[in-house]
Amino acid sequence: MTDDNRPFAIRKYDAARLRDALRKMYLIRFFEEGAEDSYMRGLIHGTMHLSIGQEASAVASCMGLTDEDKITSTHRGHGHCIAKGAEVGRMFAEFFGKEEGYCHGRGGSMHIADVTKGNLGANGIVGGGLPIAVGAGLTAKRLNTGAVAICFFGDGANNEGAFHEALNMAAIWKLPVVFICENNKYGMSTSTERSTAVKNIAERAVAYAMPGHTVDGNDFSAVAETVEAAIARARAGEGPSLIENLTYRWRGHSKSDRNRYRSKQEIDEWMARDPIQRFRKELVEHAILDESEAEKVATEARQEVEAGIEFAKSGTAPRIPDLARYVYAEENA
């Protein structure tokens, strides 16, 4: 096998898993387009942070995980949620504020979670999930569960104190945590060049005596290979890693973004590096599926999203007297 020059993912995963990975990437893309469209139509209120353009990072990073493994996510967390196995119907129901949603309509886009699948939740606070992921790693180590925790965060979070405190503690206690920075170049409008003293965020791993890797985050195989190695290291009790997936969000930071801080040209260049097209092409090239099969995966994902929106529309609105339900355990009944 030493002369096998095929990409890592093609070597590592069987056709069914690769097809499912493509399906999840399409689901993320169409889910977010559907959410955006529903927002424009006034069906969803509040705001949302779209990860269109970052799908490879979410899906490839979760390839080595089981439902026992945990993830913590970010305000840009729809992709992570789908990658970890959530159903888009219940996600839409959450966005529509319905009882059928993952958080019974109490959380919305910024707190989307699916605890049964090990997704401990998106987070409205930049850096909020970092120490929580370390806590999940502590539980895994103390109870000897063999689980790992993947901690997603953005480039913005790497300048929060919580980032530094979390990485340090994961390292001194050799906890099974993989820190994945999705560096999409901007914390809202402020570029990493203006906000961050190091060129690559992965360099900060040196300060916490853990391996650091900067990866092309739009290359499914490269991400999967790097994260799988970090997961193996974590499961072996050798401690945490820091991985930086270089990627780009096609959309603005949130719904109020007027894109004043970046050029049309830059956006176009990154859109030409679509991670889904790239992965699909790779699968076809290596005869995992043919064009018509790939198209079928996309079509089915689109249909799943459409069905999810219909499911959400027909959902149940929470009752006003239930406003304080779920604040405390005894109020759940």
């Binding site: 992921a133 370390v134 806590g135 999940a136």
Partner: peptide, 11 residues
């Protein structure tokens, strides 16, 4: 935060 994450996951 580590205590919160640990509590959330079973400690």
């Amino acid at each position: 935060g580590v205590a919160v994450g640990a509590a959330l996951t079973g400690l």
